[in-house]
Design a protein around this nucleic acid. Structure first.
Length: 277
DNA sequence: ATGCTACCCTGGCAGC
DNA sequence: TGCTGCCAGGGTAGCA
């Protein structure tokens, strides 16, 4: 499940090969993959052909390429739950569930996604340079590593929802998903059901979120449910998970069995002793 | 405005 | 061995 560290890793792999190259083919094998949640109009994919890749950036869990061919375009890729971007040799057989193929001067990028929660979209880049095209519907939350202490506190202060739910809300912070929310809450000693956290606890949570994401980016992400980067390499951060996927196993700090419960429609993993409400 | 649930989708696996 | 049914979750629609 690609969250910020996984998407960051994929973004680096895409950047390394696509930057400065022209988009020479844009094949949509499953046209309904080219969509936006609202009804905003998207660009005609063929309008992007011949455009040179000027930027490859990550925003939350989104990957955004900026291209130029007289016009200026933004191309969004979201990996959803099971999405994978994989470099392939020209003409290499597509694996099952390949929904789109982007070719950059002959370097083929295959977009696979068995569960089909991912999507692709393209729109004219906004005038004046900054930000993303509204049609791409990119969550407006803060980048977790860019939000300062005061911004972070202001985001979560006064919210009534369990902190785990708030952490997953991409309109507040964008890029934190189920794995890293659980890991950060454990490190901060905060129970996922805790509400209305004090300033001191929110500051501790901010440090934990930053630490977990930074370590995970350095490890190339977490390889569960088959995640691979664009060069087919796994990440290694799952070996350092302290609560996620460890239900029933002893807490690494106090030995109490790690518990799991559903919160906000997602499974939360936590130590009932180390993490306080 | 905010919070919560149902739903989308398929591979993998437990249990029979 | 083979079948059934459940589970995983990012994001949104729609409702309270």
């Amino acid at each position: 499940m690609p969250e910020l560290p996984e998407v960051e890793t994929v973004a680096r792999g895409v950047r390394a090969q696509a930057l400065g190259r022209r988009l020479t083919e844009f094949l949509l094998l499953r046209p309904d993959f080219y969509r936006t949640p609202g009804r905003a109009a998207l660009a005609d994919p063929s309008a992007l052909l011949g455009a040179v890749v000027r930027r490859v950036e990550r925003a939350g869990k989104y990957l955004v390429l900026t291209l130029e061919n007289g016009g200026r375009w933004q191309l969004l890729l979201h990996l959803g739950m099971s999405g994978r971007l994989q470099w392939a040799a020209p003409g290499q057989a597509r694996e099952p569930h390949t929904h789109a193929i982007l070719s950059f001067d002959g370097h083929e990028l295959h977009f696979r996604d068995p569960r089909r929660f991912g999507r692709i979209a393209a729109a004219p880049a906004p005038e004046g340079g900054g930000g993303f095209a509204p049609a791409l519907a990119i969550a407006a939350g803060w980048e977790p590593l860019e939000a300062g202490a005061e911004e972070f506190v202001a985001l979560f202060r006064g919210r009534d929802a369990p902190i785990k739910n708030a952490l997953l809300n991409q309109k507040l912070l964008r890029g934190v998903g189920n794995i890293y929310a659980d890991e950060a809450l454990f490190r901060a000693g905060i129970h996922p059901c805790a509400r209305r956290l004090s300033r001191a606890r929110l500051l501790r949570l901010r440090q934990a979120v930053r630490a977990v994401l930074r370590e995970a980016v350095r490890a190339g992400g977490s390889s569960i449910s088959d995640y691979r980067d664009s060069d087919g390499q796994p990440g290694w951060f799952h070996l350092r998970h302290r609560v996620y996927g460890r239900t029933g196993e002893p807490c690494l700090h106090c030995g109490t069995p790690i518990r799991q419960r559903v919160l906000g429609g997602r499974s939360a993993h936590f130590c009932p002793r180390c993490q306080k409400r």
